[in-house]
Every structure is written in C-alpha cells, then in structure tokens.
Design a protein around this nucleic acid. Structure first.
Lengths: 336, 336
DNA sequence: CTGAAAGCGCTTACAG
DNA sequence: CTGAAAGCGCTTACAG
C-alpha cells in the first residue's frame, strides 16, 4: 500500500501501569478522564509515570478499538491557490483546537476517488472538501459512513452539508457599490471556470448576484468574460475585456486571484485603475491589500466558516449554513 | 485527547476471506503482495471478493502491528504564506506518489512541541519541517525514533538532515546581476526576520551572498533593512529604504512576498521600478509574474526539493543536500 | 502454495 | 475505586 520507514516504539500503557503500580485499565481511565473514576492519589502516580516515561498513547491501537481516529481529511484543488491556502490554514487551526489532525489531499484537477479511498482506510472522522467530488467518491464515503462537509463549494448538492459564503449577497452588494456609489453603467463580469472553453455546468451564485444588481438598476448584462480562477486567468480576462467589451468602465471579478492578474493586464495595456476601469473583487485575501491600487473586495469570513465546518463534522450535524461576506473598500473601486 | 465522531466500519479481512473461501492470511498476502506467494487462481478469487465487498484494509490495525504508518507530518509556520503553500503543495504531491498521507501542522509562531507530540502518537513515518523546532521537540522526535527532515530551513543545525536551496549562490548571483548587467553601485538588502526588532540569531546565507557579491565588486554593505517575511514587511521596508538609504538605486529582497510589498510601497511613494529603484528577489513564486512590473527572482526548485525530502524520510538517509536556484529575469531588475 | 495462531497497544464491559 | 480479560483488524513467523 505504501512505502514506510522504521518502527517508532516508545513506552506502552503497560510500562506506565507497571511503573505506577496499577493496572493498565487505570492508566486508560486517567488518560481518557474516564469512563471510570480514579482516586486522586492514584491519578498522581499514573501522571508521574507517564511523565517519567514520556508516554504517548498509540493512536493506532486506540483507533482500532474505537473505530475512529482523530484524523480529518481536507481536500482542496491546490494549496498554492491563496484562497485554498487561507481555507486550509483556517481549517487546520480549528481542527487542532478540537484535537484533530488534518490530512491534506490535493485533487490537482484529478479525481477525488483515490484520495477518498486512501483517507477511508484511516478511519478519518470525516472529510472536508473544497473540491468537487465525483459520485464514486461520494459513494465510497457513504459506504464507509464517513461524514463529508463541503466548504465554500459552489453549488452545494442537494442534501449535502455545506458551509459557504453568501456568494449571491456578496456579489450583489459589491456590484451595487459600483453602481450606486460610483455611478458605473457598463460593468463586466469576470467569471471563474475550471473549463473556460465550455459553459459552466451550473451558474455560480456570484453571477446571479451581479446579474440581479445590474437588472435592478436597468443595466445590461451582456459583458461576461469567463476565465480560469487564477492570476493568469485574470490577465487573460484583461485582454478579452479590452477587445470584446471596450466600453466597460468597471469590472466585478469573482476571485482576488483573477483581479490581481486583471490589474496587471490592464496596467500593462496602459489603462489606469480605477480611472479608466474600476475593479471590485471577491475573497478578501491578504494580498489584495498590496495590489496597485489596493483592491476593493468582498471578504469571506473564513475563520468562522472553518470553525463551522469542523464542528459540523464532529457533531455530525448536516445543516447547510451561509456566511455573510463584508465589503472591504479600497482604492480599486474608486473610493478614497 | 480529542473530539471524534462516528465509527466507520466496513468489510474486514475476515469477511473477504470467508467470501473468497480462503484463510485470512492469504488475503494479507494478496493485499500486500507478500510475504508469501499466492496461486493466481486464489489471487483472483480474493481480488474479486475485495472488489465485491469494497474492502479497504484498516490502517490502524496495520499500524498497530507494523509499528509504523503511511502518515508523514509536515510542519510549516503558516500555509497562507505563498512560499510555504508552494512547499506544502510540492510535498503533498511527492508524498502521495509514494503512497504517503500528509498531516499538516502549522506552528503559527507557536511552539512545535505539541504538534510533534500529537504526530508521534500516530506513528508517523517521519516529519518534514520548514519551521524551526525547539530542542524539546527535537528530543521528543528522537525519543520516538521519528526521522526529521528540514526542508528549506535556514540555517541547518549540524547533523540535521536538511534539504535546502543554495541560498548563498542564488543570492550572490542575483546581486551580481544587478552589479554587472545593470551597473548598480548602491544595492540595499531587505533581510527577513521573524523578530525584526532583534538581530537575527544566525546570518541567513542570502545575506552572505549579497555581502560577498558587493565586496567582490568593492561596493559598500551598509544598507540593510530587516523586516518580516511578508508583504507587509516589504511595504514597511520600502519606507525604511527611502528614509534611511535614499541613495540606493537597487534592492535585493530575500523573499518574493517582501518584494511584492516593497513594489507596492515604492510605487505608492511615487518611485518608478526599475528606473528609480531596481528590484531582484528570491523564491520564484508564481505571483512574481503578476507584479507591476514583473519581478526578477531566483527560482527555488521546489519540486525536486520536496521529492528529495520525502525520499530522505522514507529511505532513512541523513545527508544534507543543496539545490541550485535559477534566476528568472523579468522587468523589475531593468531587463527587457 | 495455504492456514492456524500469536500478538501489536489499546478500551471497556464486567466483576469485585 | 480497581483489575482481569476479551477483542478491535491486521501481519507474520511457523508448520504443513
């Protein structure tokens, strides 16, 4: 199944029991704070022995008997993408706070099934995914009764536990800002796609947010550019915008990475931001503060979402929850 | 020790054995391709049964008996930092190629000891760290006979297995480029530090590379700015450069994140890059392509390093290896 | 080539 | 409050 290395045996529970002069069951009671009470004097002896021996419970033995582990799988497309890096960082922090170790798996444009199979063998307490799982992967998880939580994954399947930002409201409010505060009438949408050539399988709620904001103001929604969710995609979108929709005075990009590439592309083409083209984005990533000009963006409450995801997993809840982004206003939209 | 959820029991080896009409030992032989040979006809029966039952070996039971697991710990300060994200991505890919699952742990300016203790309990095959471990953490690992590989960690302790870029040569060559190709005479160093207020505990080899390049050319090495390894640090460095070393015509930054912040800071202050201040950096991160202007940077061969780190861990080797960065020339240094 | 059996380090009824 | 004992699902000598 895998390449592995040297054994790493340390003191066992029996060693501790012997040194403390108690039975090994008592050591368990102390280590786990139950399920039987232990006299204080006994507890002290055991704790001393544990300390003296540097004893760590063997997670494998514990897993074997309890049928679960303190492992949770996290699946992201690619941690190099700053959005997923932020997501992974937040989930790791929340998981650790709950005593859970995070197994990182990247789908990198591949199938999730092998990842999920590998994770199942570890009796993971559950899987948090920010990548789209194919039906086979979902089936494997459910066969092994492993909980799956979708984090920031659009769109949620029906019945699936999802923790996600309110993409719709965030996008709508950002576009409204461009319309109502800055008076723009021609605002393009830079949509994200993993397969830019083909139309999206489902409409991203951010697109609906943009459309509704435009429609409410009686503005046209014909200027749509669909590119990868990356800086390179945004760069490409800059070119498409200038050639296909030269009359647009503003843009809403679905991700900060796209906005970063777009700024580079537009600036390289001699356009000034926000004077020639105003930009508002979505994500709220830290690097949005250091673009030139600094980027106005809808900030996703990642920490709260990560916490909710870990909680759902551990508590076994299955409700879907929406988190409101907040617009961080900087110079790229024309403010200041 | 931790919050955990529902059991996830599936078919066991005995179920497979029963269905295939063989002993459970034979199932092991098939699953593990050894250590005993199995007749082809028998193997087929077993494989069929495995398939039919959706059987996955229980990693906990296997770990318990073999004393090791297919888990490897990866410790980074913070995955949100694009450099560590790139590192984590590369290590995850190489680990998975070897059938190994990566447990992500972030030190986030805290101690490594609790992370290491948590990992030890899982009989991890080893730990790869890009964060500085304190002596207690090192002791815990060695007590549990867990191999530690330091990846891109400066400076390596004596005797520790380290996989790192040739910081010295990379920095020296980058600075030489500024001197020899572009004729700069006053080149500042933006050094990194986790504690900018205090002097660095050890001299980063990148600093020595800068110094030696300057010294060889008979140039002064008094312009040093020490800031955090972040965009925010680079932004701050821009201010310090303009106030403390206004005569510098070029800068070598130790990390791309710092360069990104520095570009934003200098541009915000009305300086043109590379005309007023030329910049060369270190890392080779993807976003360096989308700064304005695009950033010249020494590219670290992360994939090769990650592969070497995983290999060292699994093979139990302990040599230290250096990897040569390559200078990616873009516009920030004055080229093109 | 195949199988019966011991044992990895734990947890948890159960009995005291 | 404490302990003896069964058993989680595997691997691997050992015997056949």
């Amino acid at each position: 199944m895998s390449s592995e290395t040297r054994p790493a045996r340390g003191a066992t529970r029996d060693d501790v029991a012997k040194l403390a002069g108690v039975s090994s069951a008592v050591v368990s009671y102390v280590v786990n704070n139950g399920p039987r009470p232990v006299a204080d004097a006994t507890r002290v002896k055991v704790l001393d022995a544990i300390d003296k021996l540097g004893y760590r419970p063997n997670a494998a033995a514990r897993s074997l008997i309890t049928g679960r582990s303190d492992l949770v799988g996290l699946i992201v497309p690619d941690v190099r993408n700053p959005y997923f890096a932020a997501l992974a960082q937040a989930v790791e922090v929340e998981a650790r706070a709950e005593g859970v170790n995070l197994v990182l798996a990247q789908s990198l444009a591949g199938q999730l099934l092998p990842l999920v199979e590998s994770l199942s063998g570890h009796l993971v307490a559950g899987v948090i995914t920010a990548a789209v799982p194919e039906p086979e992967a979902i089936a494997t998880l459910s066969r092994n009764r492993i909980t799956m939580v979708r984090l920031s994954l659009v769109p949620p399947d029906v019945d699936a536990t999802s923790i996600l930002p309110d993409y719709y409201a965030g996008a709508r409010d950002a576009v409204k800002h461009l319309i109502e505060v800055h008076g723009h009438k021609r605002i393009a949408l830079v949509a994200g796609s993993d397969t830019p050539d083909r139309p999206a399988v489902v409409i991203d709620s951010r697109q609906r947010g943009w459309e509704d904001a435009m429609n409410s103001a009686g503005l046209p929604t014909d200027a749509v550019v669909r590119v990868n969710w990356s800086s390179a995609g945004g760069w490409k979108a800059a070119g498409l915008l200038l050639s296909d929709h030269p009359d647009c005075t503003a843009v809403f990009t679905m991700s900060d990475q796209q906005a970063i590439g777009m700024i580079a592309g537009l600036t390289g083409a001699g356009r000034r931001i926000p004077d020639d083209v105003a930009i508002t984005s979505f994500d709220g990533s830290p690097e949005a503060e250091f673009t030139i000009p600094p980027l106005t963006t809808s900030s996703v409450p990642m920490k709260a979402m990560a916490k909710a995801a870990v909680e759902q997993l551990l508590k076994g809840r299955t409700e879907t929850r929406l988190f409101e982004p907040g617009l961080i206003v900087r110079r790229s939209c024309g403010c200041h």
